[in-house]
Design a protein around this nucleic acid. Structure first.
Length: 554
RNA sequence: GGCCCCAUGGUCAAGUGGUUAAGACAUCGCCCUUUCACGGCGGUAACCCGGGUUCGAACCCCGGUGGGGUCACCA
């Protein structure tokens, strides 16, 4: 077989030499130890938590080392393309404050290593396939779908591994004449790697060992499959594009999910075939969840709404909080660092691939809430208010007017109990915040809870009327509360809860019960921040109105 | 099924041959307190199983079991 002739026959239009590309895409000039990473999504426009999780790792790795983080679109599968996908990807990541230095962008590609859409790189890929043909490392395969499934059936019958390898790789033996004939007949074909791996029983297979930055040494049988590198369309498969692109975009670290582990031997063989070193691989564990049957399982796009990033945006989880949570599960020592450095900017934490977990973390909404509370308590009210406005604009336009134009009022509300050295940590996400403060808006104010069991309706009415009679909006907090204590005591409620606890038979209840009645009148619920503070924000008129209205119910 | 990855409390996890087996979340109790939070103190709770190596194993080796992944002209 004349490989040179075959190469010309297959790729007459390829005229550039492989060496030229080394000059077009020179090794990057970066500081020592700088890392070049990438996010390489397929353009379905759907970005989920797992994508964000590894994008975050990529971004940290690059930006902590003075390197480059870029976006490459893996659009080798035309069926998957969704209009506006790049825009979605960039916007979503931007929301979580993850920014690209180069690569595909909303207004076009940016950077010297492009194009950053794989669909635009056909010539590059084909140049190297041509080279492989010349070296006898790749060959055309004309097998039809039927023939392929026939081979599979035969393999199943004798319990052989499925795939094109060893003696099953029949197209390896095609003569130049046969190929020429097929070509003339216009038969579609793919290009396959001519694997050097041998078809041996598993225990006799040669092995390869790769040092994974997360998992350490991984030993696997070498690849022996003649996998497709160029589809019939002339566009490469993921495997081949990965090798070419990450070489020429000079990627140093590839962070990807563990589902790629099984194709690692193929990628290693491809890099070896090309004569290039492979990048450092970081295979991350999948995010898991407990399903209905109590089993751990991979989070699935279809079934688990919490995997969708929209879910967090819709519920209004603050990007800072999501970042913080993600870092929690990304690097196990982050939490310790955060406790030691409560106020340090998150970017000061030194992220390392080595500290990434190699078992699948269960997604924990509880923990996320806790992280949110800690993060939000540090965000100034004005900023939170703006956050609520932005969120409402997109997801709850009907409540937007409550916020927009009322910033001063909202900020007072958000800061209720948050000042001082023991600030309340009540705020989790926008949906919850709105629910938490909605009694401040007359249209959303309703009585939600029942009277305490120690308080009769008659007493409730009396409490409210007495409260109203002695109400002075200008009282300071202690005067205000003393009044409640005093008339409560006169009505048979212990002035101190402890007294009631000691002698429950001597009292109807305690001052807490009395204040709860007031609380119900003012907020509609039995639990809230400090009533006095709420009344100050509400104003005298609305406070009195609410107390009157509630008293009228009894 | 072949191959690969993984395995410490309910969850996330420290831990790399000798530890009272950290810490965080959740949970429970107490304290603080006008409710709820916040905060403080304390409690319950773990090395998947079986062999080996060793004076000694959560840790090393082998074999199970369980969970996950993968076996496409998808990525």
């Amino acid at each position: 077989m004349d490989n040179m002739k075959l190469a010309e026959l297959l790729f007459p239009h390829i005229t550039k030499s492989p060496e030229e590309y080394e000059d077009i895409f020179p090794v990057r000039e970066l500081p020592e130890g700088a890392r070049v990473t990438r996010m390489a999504p397929s353009p379905t426009g759907f970005i989920h938590l797992g994508n964000l999780f590894s994008a975050f790792a990529d971004e940290r790795l690059a930006h902590q080392s003075g390197g480059v983080f870029y976006l490459r679109i893996e659009d080798t599968d035309d069926k998957r393309y969704v209009e506006g996908a790049v825009e979605t990807i960039v916007n979503v990541l931007d929301y979580f404050q993850i920014n690209f230095d180069e690569g595909a962008g909303i207004t076009g590609d940016k950077g010297d290593y492009g194009p950053y859409h794989q669909s635009q790189r056909a010539e590059l890929y084909q140049t190297f396939v041509k080279k492989m043909v010349q070296n006898g490392q790749a060959y055309p395969c004309f097998l039809t779908e039927e023939e392929l499934s026939d081979i599979r059936a035969q393999q199943e019958a004798i319990k052989a591994n499925p795939g094109i390898y060893g003696k099953w790789a029949v197209s390896r033996d095609l003569t130049l004449e046969q190929i020429e004939e097929n070509l003339k007949a216009g038969k579609p074909y793919v290009m396959r790697l001519k694997s050097k791996g041998q078809d041996l029983p598993p225990e006799e297979m040669k092995t390869i060992t790769v040092n994974d930055a997360i998992r350490g040494d991984i030993t696997m049988p070498e690849n022996n499959m003649d996998l497709v590198i160029l589809k019939a369309t002339g566009i490469p498969t993921y495997h081949f594009a990965h090798v070419i692109d990450d070489h020429f975009m000079r990627t140093t670290h590839v962070v990807r999910g563990e589902e790629w582990l099984s194709s690692l031997p193929l990628h290693v063989e491809l890099f070896e075939t090309m004569g290039w070193p492979h990048p450092v691989y970081c295979h991350t564990a999948h995010l898991m969840k407990i399903d209905e049957t109590g089993n751990k399982r991979k989070l699935s796009k279809r079934k688990d709404p919490e995997l969708s990033l929209d879910y967090y945006r819709r519920d209004g989880y603050h990007p800072m909080a999501v970042r913080e949570y993600l870092l929690n599960i990304l690097n196990s020592n982050f939490e310790e660092w955060r406790i030691a450095n409560p106020d340090a900017p998150i970017d000061e934490f030194q992220f390392t691939a080595e500290k990434m977990s190699n078992s699948g973390a269960l997604f924990d909404l509880n923990k996320l809430s806790d992280v949110c509370k800690d993060v939000l308590v540090k965000i100034p009210a004005a900023e939170l208010c703006q956050f609520m406005i932005d969120w409402a604009k997109e997801f709850r336009p009907e409540i937007l007017p409550l916020f927009e134009g009322n910033e001063a009022y909202i900020e007072q509300i958000l800061d209720l109990g948050r000042t001082g050295n023991k600030p309340r940590k009540d705020l989790v996400c926008a949906v919850q915040i709105f629910d938490f403060i909605k009694y401040f808006f007359d249209d959303h104010f309703v009585i939600e809870n029942e009277l305490p069991e120690n308080v009769s309706k008659e007493d409730a009415k009396a409490i409210l009327e007495t409260y109203l009679a002695g109400y002075d909006h200008n009282d300071d907090q202690s005067v205000w509360f003393d009044k409640i204590r005093t008339f409560g005591a006169e009505m048979g409620y212990a002035a101190k809860p402890k007294d009631f606890k000691k002698n429950p038979d001597m009292y109807k209840g305690h001052v807490g019960d009395v204040s709860t009645v007031v609380r119900l009148a003012v907020t509609g619920r039995s639990q809230s921040p400090d009533i006095w503070g709420i009344q100050q924000i509400l104003g005298e008129e609305r406070t009195i109105e609410r107390v009157k209205a509630y008293a009228a119910q009894f």
